[in-house]
Amino acid sequence: MKALLIFLLLALNMHPAVAQNYDRMRENMVRRQIRNRGIDHKPTLEAMLSVERHLFVPAGQQARAYDDGPVPIGYGQTISQPYIVAYMTQLADPKPGDRVLEIGAGSGYQAAVLGEIVEQVYTIEIIPELAARARGLLRELGYDNIEVLTGDGYYGLEKHAPYDAIVVTAAAEYIPPPLIAQLKDGGKMIIPVGSPFLVQTLMLIEKKGERITTTNLMPVRFVPFTRRN
């Protein structure tokens, strides 16, 4: 049934006029919301142009898919604002041969963007319904290099560790020790930290040998608190 619905959804979106419209919206999104705000990482920009964001939002919300903001996807979760996705991707600095771990698959959109660039993405989602939805959609869209797992992201995924980058999309008041352990030497972790239900700080964690350093990047709540001086 779910596969049928996804097929219908895809079929509907293949209507030339509608598809062209989304294509134009996506180009505008990348130009106005992402490139104009300073994101210049070429693979990220190409991936954001390529991934059809409107397929990752609930059917009733598709018209808002390319808006400059988050869109609710149910279970108290949102698909992040396009700029946040691009910003986190650029920071992770993904490269073609990389192995990336994502914690908090949500809609699967961030994983799809990463999957366009790197060799393998593992993404863990704690809410089974969201995980199933993301898994089905990513499979339908042909992302063979993305594996969606259902579980508690706290433990990471030791089986495929270490990772070149770990992207955490679910906020916590702590940085899970297992995730730090699973980061490759020279690897980067992007994680929103702080009280999970309110304002969080996006943070970059870098591992160089035994030394671990953190950099506060920006506060986020739906949208980043970017300051224009």
């Binding site: 706290y154 008041e173 940085i175 730090i180 964690i205 671990i212």
Partner: peptide, 10 residues
Amino acid sequence: ALRYAPGLSL
């Protein structure tokens, strides 16, 4: 899966 450790050292 409910955990609490605000600002835990790395």
